[in-house]
Design a protein around this nucleic acid. Structure first.
Lengths: 190, 190
DNA sequence: CATGGCACCATGTGATCACAAACGCGGGCG
DNA sequence: CGCCCGCGTTTGTGATCACATGGTGCCATG
């Protein structure tokens, strides 16, 4: 999910087992679950690797993010108090520091934490789970995105999200979330 | 997914293994995958059963269906030719016959086939997969719904969907799909 | 008769093994 | 020099086993 593994990297059950000091059985179960969620892809012969997404697939997943996350943000508005906004602001300044260190996985993790913190307030666990499934599928690809665009500052759409949240401006929030979610991925397919 | 199992039914690995003439290992993998997708729920002790959904959860899943399926229908419009509409109509008349036989699982299966046939045209596999995941979660509950409401005719929203499709009327289609998807579930939480 | 405890049985987990398939590398041939 | 075949090794799959845990039903006791 955090882009620690590049797209197309092969994984083996015995390798994973060695890495985490377990036998093949738990490794298999974990891998199969991730395959079921689309986070890993399995060849016809059962070989497993991180997915290399086609442009069409990336666009589709971006559309899914927009669809789900706009709805989640919208549902979070009524419950968004000052404590939440403060927390979002803290995370956001943290992102600026991480960006300075050129830490791809850290950036992705902090960025998703920003979003998850907001969406938790929507009180919609199934919807949040689906959004996280999409994040999982995009993880390796987002790493590739980050290393390509060499971002130098925190995403300014986060500031728009916070502003819309403060103002209780639902249409503004929906637009800001959609833009934030879509922005990066557009660069990737271009 | 088709409501063949009522909510709350317990499942055991050895039982599933016996039923399908395999050992525990494949049964475990299948069960764990279904748990990951939310189609089965697992207690803290690892016991597995079909989920008994709360009203909140049902409403959330209905909202997800609306969100995803409206988008899928919308994307299917440009590719919806006459052959597709014919197929939908055939499925729909099939539903009428099934309804007469009081066959809950058959009804659910045919109903979902109607929707899937339409959504396949959207060329959005990830989105369709998510919709199917929601269907999976709702399966046992939909059975309960069907046996409660004792439907006597095919859903008339299907006719609206077909009509909107013929007319190329996107807003009409979105509304019809949203209504069809939401209608039954409303009855359940009431 | 109700209730609490106890023993047994069923159940999930992780490890290990046997096996088949496929991947990759090397050598030989065109 | 390039391509293809073949073999060895790696890999995934399914079965089976040992074990710990939790659920259940029975029995004894108040």
């Amino acid at each position: 999910m955090f882009g620690q593994i590049p797209p197309g990297a092969p994984l083996t059950l015995r390798g994973i087992g060695r890495e985490f000091d377990v036998s093949m059985t738990p490794a298999r179960e974990a891998v199969q679950r991730l395959v079921a969620e689309g986070a890993l892809s399995m060849s016809a012969s059962g070989r497993v690797s991180t997915p290399e997404l086609s442009n069409d697939r990336i666009e589709e997943l971006a559309a899914l993010r927009a669809l789900l996350e706009v709805e989640l943000a919208s549902r979070a508005i009524p419950r968004a108090h000052m404590a939440l906004i403060d927390r979002l602001q803290t995370i956001n300044t943290g992102i600026s520091e991480i960006v300075a260190n050129r830490d791809a996985a850290g950036y992705i993790r902090a960025n998703l934490e920003f979003h998850r913190t907001l969406y938790l307030r929507a009180q919609a666990p199934a919807m949040l789970a689906m959004a996280e499934t999409v994040w999982l599928q995009l993880g390796p690809t987002m790493r590739a995105l980050y290393t390509r665009l060499r971002r130098s500052e925190a995403p300014h759409y986060h500031r728009l999200i916070i502003a819309a949240l403060k103002a209780g401006d639902e249409p503004g929030l929906r637009l800001a979330v959609r833009s934030d979610v879509t922005q990066g991925l557009k660069m990737l397919v271009g």
